[in-house]
């Protein structure tokens, strides 16, 4: 009996291991595959129009958030109808699987992962595919780490940077400045006085550059501040597919949210991270989209990025009714700007 069971398990495993490569070219593609690199097995879900020669690669925020579920909202539909969109869960994020890999949890490893993802996308969908990075928040930092390295910027055709944190020290000081400036105005106007008082008291008494912990507290207050702004649109709840058959694993998402920091030196590395000095190397087309009320990564960080890069095709769009997630709060304007940007340079 045991022998029979063992043979069954082995046969099942072999059959499972020999899956056929499925590459779809249609207007409603839904291809899933994994890319293995340095101890991580990262899922990539390609959705939308793969007949188009344009592919948007979503570089999600966090670190520790995800693309397959969180960034794959209904707001992406207009982009998916025109282009292929690749949702990639980074290492130690979302539904990415791996073992004990904290020793390689560094920004350089994430950048290496991104390069491998682009290589596999070109292998699957054609080397002449026009790839645009669609990065958000920490994804902007990761994209900068990748693009400023060697000739990596030649692998992509453009960079769409939504509230990207390319300079953490600058992000911290600008965030503090914004919390003090807008917080004081809101308090004076008598709006949410108790909440603003707590935020202002902390901002006045502390410097976010003291330690990663203080910086993290400023980050938390920045998210609270966004919620207090009536000017920021409140998007509806997106439906979740956690309770349906899907490649997402709710448990994996929850665990990875902590695994990216627990026992790793990533937080310390991010605290000091700035790509400002390397940005003049960039000469690819760049579109920056920032929420006017993004206290987390203020628009000034986007302006600084544009001031430093050597690109001639560069633009900053500030969205007046958005905080840190303009793709969800003002999807029509964001998508229109992205489509215009891609169509101009494709």
């Amino acid at each position: 009996m045991i022998r029979l069971l063992s043979i069954s398990i082995v046969c099942l495993s072999v059959l499972w291991g020999c899956q056929r490569e499925e590459i779809t070219f249609s207007t409603q593609t839904k291809d899933l595959f994994f890319v293995q690199n340095q101890g991580a097995s990262m899922p990539v879900l390609v959705e939308g129009n793969t007949v188009s020669d344009v592919l948007l690669l979503v570089v999600h925020g966090g670190p520790g958030s995800d693309a397959l579920q969180t960034m794959n909202g209904s707001w992406m539909a207009p982009l998916e109808s025109r282009y292929a969109v690749a949702y990639w869960d980074q290492r130690n994020a979302g539904s990415t699987q791996g073992g004990a890999n904290h020793d390689v949890l560094k920004v350089a490893t994430f950048a290496d992962d991104l390069k491998k993802i682009i290589t596999v996308l070109k292998h699957r969908y054609g080397a002449n595919r026009r790839i645009f990075l669609y990065s958000h928040s920490w994804g902007g930092c990761l994209s900068a780490a990748f693009l400023t390295q060697a000739d990596n910027q030649l692998l992509v055709n453009g960079w769409i940077n939504l509230d990207g944190a390319t300079d953490f020290p600058l992000k911290d000081t600008e965030s503090k400045d914004m919390q003090l400036r807008i917080g004081t105005a809101e308090k004076t106007a008598g709006r949410n006085v108790a909440e603003w008082t707590a935020i202002l008291d902390y901002a006045q008494a502390n410097d976010p550059r003291t330690s990663p912990k203080v910086s993290e507290r400023f980050n938390d207050n920045a998210f609270k501040a966004i919620k207090l702004m009536d000017q920021v649109n409140k998007p509806g709840m997106e439906p979740t597919n956690d309770l349906r058959y899907s490649p997402n694993s709710l448990m994996s998402r929850l665990v990875n949210f902590y695994s990216v920091y627990a026992g790793s030196s990533l937080e310390t590395e991010l605290f000091k991270l700035s790509f400002s000095a390397l940005l003049p190397r960039l000469n690819l087309p760049v579109l920056c989209l920032f929420g006017k009320y993004d206290f987390v990564v203020p628009p000034a960080v986007g302006q600084e990025l544009l001031n430093r890069i050597s690109s001639t095709d560069k633009r900053l769009v500030v969205l007046n009714r958005s905080g840190h997630d303009p793709y969800a709060t003002e999807p029509d304007i964001v998508n229109e700007q992205i489509i215009r940007f891609i169509e101009r340079i494709r």
Binding site: Q19, E22, L32, F33, F34, Q97, K116
Partner: peptide, 10 residues
Amino acid sequence: TFLGAETYRV
């Protein structure tokens, strides 16, 4: 575990 889709390595 066996991953749920085609897997690549570069």
